[in-house]
Lab assay of single mutants.
Amino acid sequence: FDIYVVTADYLPLGAEQDAITLREGQYVEVLDAAHPLRWLVRTKPTKSSPSRQGWVSPAYLDRRL
């Protein structure tokens, strides 16, 4: 999967189903980028939180090589 970094805090609107909150600087794996406005991502697990999966706007993501 492609690795992206979150460029700004992402707080989903209440109406968005299956969306997750992301923090600036967080790394995520993009699982599904087929839709231009919503990408399915999975967060990297940390010592304090397990990995999470949900939909985010790709405008908040920047690809890492």
Rank of each mutant, 00 (worst) to 15 (best):
L22P: 00
R42K: 09
Y60R: 02
L40P: 01
D32A: 05
R23F: 15
I3N: 04
T46W: 07
V56Q: 01
L13P: 13
R38K: 11
L31C: 02
R23G: 05
S48R: 05
Y10S: 03
W39E: 00
V6T: 04
V5E: 05
V30T: 02
D32N: 11
E29M: 10
D2H: 11
P50T: 07
V30I: 09
Y27T: 09
Y10N: 04
V28L: 03
V5S: 04
K44V: 15
V30R: 01
T21K: 09
Y10F: 11
L61I: 05
G14Q: 13
T21I: 13
Q17V: 14
A33Y: 12
V5L: 09
V5I: 13
R42M: 06
A59L: 14
D2W: 14
H35D: 15
A19V: 09
S49W: 09
A59R: 09
K44L: 15
P58Y: 02
I3T: 10
V5Q: 08
S51W: 07
L13W: 10
R63V: 11
D62S: 14
T7H: 04
K44H: 12
G54N: 02
R42F: 03
L65C: 09
P12F: 06
E16D: 13
L31F: 02
P12T: 08
Y10G: 04
R63F: 15
W39L: 01
D18A: 06
Q17C: 07
L11I: 15
L11H: 14
V6C: 07
L61W: 01
L13N: 14
D62G: 11
V28W: 01
P12S: 08
G14R: 11
L11C: 09
H35L: 08
G14T: 13
T7V: 14
L31K: 02
W39F: 03
P50S: 06
A15D: 15
D32Y: 09
G25T: 02
D32M: 06
S57K: 05
S57P: 14
L37W: 10
D2I: 11
V41G: 00
T46Y: 10
W39D: 01
H35T: 10
Y27K: 06
P12D: 07
V41N: 00
S57M: 06
A8F: 08
Q53G: 03
S48Q: 12
V6R: 00
G54A: 05
V41Q: 00
R63W: 12
T46E: 10
T43H: 04
L61E: 01
V56A: 06
L31Q: 02
T43F: 05
L13K: 12
K44P: 11
R42C: 04
L13Q: 13
W55K: 02
A34S: 15
Q53K: 08
Q53P: 02
W39Y: 03
K47M: 13
Q26G: 03
T46L: 06
A33K: 15
R23C: 08
E24R: 12
E24Y: 12
A33C: 14
V41S: 00
D9P: 06
W55H: 03
K47D: 15
F1N: 10
L13F: 11
V28A: 01
P50H: 06
T43C: 06
W39A: 00
V6E: 00
R64Q: 14
D9G: 06
Y60C: 05
G25F: 03
P36L: 05
D62P: 01
T46K: 06
I20P: 04
S51L: 06
G54T: 05
L61D: 01
D2P: 15
P12V: 08
P12G: 08
L11F: 15
V28R: 00
E16F: 08
R63Q: 11
R52Y: 11
R38W: 11
A34G: 12
D18E: 09
D18P: 06
R38L: 11
L65S: 14
R52G: 05
A8D: 06
L37K: 09
Y4E: 00
V30A: 02
L37C: 09
R52T: 11
D32T: 04
A34I: 08
W55L: 03
E16Y: 08
L40S: 01
H35E: 10
Q26H: 04
K47L: 13
G14D: 15
S51N: 03
H35W: 06
S49Q: 14
D2Y: 14
S48F: 14
T43G: 01
A15M: 13
S51H: 04
V30P: 00
K44A: 11
L22H: 01
G25P: 01
A34C: 08
A15C: 09
H35P: 03
A19T: 10
V6D: 00
E24W: 09
G25H: 03
R42D: 01
A59S: 12
P45M: 06
Q53W: 07
R64I: 15
P50R: 05
F1L: 10
V41T: 01
E16P: 08
V6N: 00
E16I: 09
P36I: 05
T46N: 09
E29H: 07
D32E: 08
K47I: 12
S49A: 14
V28M: 01
Q17A: 13
R52V: 15
E29D: 07
A33H: 09
Q17P: 14
V41E: 00
F1K: 09
D62A: 15
L61F: 03
P45W: 06
D32C: 07
K44Q: 14
S57L: 05
W55P: 01
T46F: 08
T7A: 06
P58Q: 03
Y10P: 02
L11W: 14
I20A: 03
G14E: 15
L40V: 02
V28K: 00
R38H: 07
Y60Q: 03
L22D: 00
I20F: 13
V6L: 04
